[in-house]
Simulated assay, not measured.
Amino acid sequence: MLQISRTSCYPRKKAQRDESTPTAKVGRPIPGYSYGINNCIVDDSVIETLLHEACEKYPFYGYRKITKILRKKHGLRINAKKVYRLSKKLGLLLPYVKHTKQGHLAIARELTGMNQLWQIDIKYVRAINGQFIMLTDIIDVYTRKLVGKEITKTATTNDALVAIQRALKENNVTRNIVLRSDNGPQFTSVKFEHFCKTNNIYHELIPTNSPNYNAHIESFHALLEKECITWNEIRDFTHGYMLINDYIKFYNDERIHGSLDYMSPNEFIRKTMN
C-alpha cells in the first residue's frame, strides 16, 4: 500500500542488556520466619537449629522427609521448598541420586490388607573381624512392616523356617498367605516346600536374575545398607546383631515412608487397620 519493497526493510536489532546493570529480583522477599503452634512466629535461626537436630538424628532422610518431621514434632507450618533452601544454605542436603525406573511385577496382585503377600530374602553383612552376619527377613508388602527375622551366623533352610514360624505366630496368620522368594537353595529345598504345604503357605518363586520381582524386600535391604551398615563400623557378630536389631525396631516404629503417607509401618497399621 505504501509502495515500499519488502527487501528494503530489516528488523530492528534487540538492545543488548548490560551485564553490569543490576536487575530486579522476581518474587516476594524471603520473610525470615515461619509459623508454629498457636500461630507463634518462629525465626529462621530457630528453624535452622531444629533442622540441624533433625538431620543429626535422621542423616539419611531427604529434605521432604525432614519437612514432615519438622511439621509433626515441632508443629511448624513450613513447606519443602523452604527446608530445601535452608538445608542447602547449611550444607545439609544429601547428594542427588538418579533413580532408574523399574518394570512392573509379572504377577500383579491386588492387595487390600496386611498378611496377604510376604517377601523373604537373605542379607549378608561382613564384620571387621571377618565374621558374617546373616539376616533372613520377611516383609509385608501392604504395610511395609518387617514381620519376621532371624539373625544368625549361617543362612540355611532351617534359619528361614524359624523366621517364617516366628512371623506366622507373631502376626496370628494361619492360612491364605502368599510367600514370594528368589531361587536361593534355602527356598528351593524339599524341606522348605514341605513346610509351606503343611502350613497353608502358597510359595511362589520369582524368575531368575529378576530382583525387581522382590522389590520391597530388596528395598528394605538397600535401606539397611544405607542407613545402618554404612554408618557404623561393625566389629563382630554381637555388635552387628545389636545394630541390626535396633534398626529393625526403628524401621517398624519410627521410619516414615512416602508410600504410607509419611507414616511408619506400625503407625500406618494403627491408623488404617483398626
Score class of each variant (00 low, 15 high):
residue 170 E to K: 13
residue 42 V to W: 04
residue 38 N to I: 09
residue 200 N to E: 13
residue 268 F to M: 06
residue 33 Y to M: 06
residue 181 S to E: 04
residue 186 Q to S: 06
residue 207 P to Y: 14
residue 18 D to W: 09
residue 200 N to A: 14
residue 267 E to C: 04
residue 196 C to V: 11
residue 254 E to V: 13
residue 81 K to G: 08
residue 268 F to H: 08
residue 61 Y to P: 06
residue 155 A to W: 01
residue 42 V to L: 04
residue 188 T to K: 12
residue 197 K to T: 13
residue 42 V to T: 04
residue 145 K to R: 12
residue 249 K to F: 02
residue 258 G to N: 07
residue 77 R to K: 14
residue 65 K to W: 01
residue 147 V to K: 01
residue 118 W to R: 06
residue 230 T to N: 15
residue 62 G to R: 01
residue 160 A to N: 13
residue 267 E to Q: 09
residue 242 M to G: 01
residue 14 K to D: 00
residue 248 I to R: 03
residue 122 I to R: 02
residue 229 I to R: 03
residue 6 R to W: 02
residue 262 Y to T: 03
residue 98 K to I: 01
residue 187 F to T: 00
residue 274 N to K: 13
residue 121 D to F: 09
residue 246 D to Y: 00
residue 248 I to G: 00
residue 90 L to F: 09
residue 69 I to W: 00
residue 211 P to W: 12
residue 12 R to G: 13
residue 263 M to N: 11
residue 167 A to D: 05
residue 6 R to K: 13
residue 80 A to R: 05
residue 94 L to Q: 14
residue 157 T to W: 03
residue 125 V to K: 01
residue 211 P to M: 11
residue 154 T to W: 00
residue 157 T to I: 06
residue 228 C to I: 05
residue 264 S to H: 03
residue 29 P to T: 08
residue 264 S to P: 04
residue 221 H to S: 08
residue 111 L to W: 10
residue 170 E to H: 10
residue 4 I to R: 12
residue 98 K to F: 02
residue 196 C to D: 11
residue 181 S to L: 03
residue 13 K to C: 08
residue 138 I to C: 02
residue 107 I to E: 15
residue 139 I to H: 04
residue 164 I to F: 04
residue 132 F to C: 12
residue 234 I to A: 05
residue 254 E to G: 10
residue 141 V to Y: 02
residue 27 G to D: 03
residue 257 H to P: 00
residue 248 I to N: 02
residue 209 N to T: 10
residue 154 T to E: 07
residue 128 I to C: 08
residue 216 H to Q: 11
residue 168 L to E: 02
residue 216 H to N: 14
residue 96 Y to E: 10
residue 40 C to V: 14
residue 253 D to F: 06
residue 31 P to M: 10
residue 138 I to P: 01
residue 158 N to Y: 13
residue 93 L to P: 05
residue 26 V to Q: 12
residue 144 R to Q: 07
residue 250 F to G: 00
residue 198 T to F: 01
residue 265 P to F: 04
residue 29 P to Y: 12
residue 59 P to N: 05
residue 158 N to F: 13
residue 143 T to H: 00
residue 28 R to K: 13
residue 88 K to W: 01
residue 57 K to V: 06
residue 123 K to V: 15
residue 10 Y to R: 14
residue 192 F to M: 14
residue 88 K to V: 05
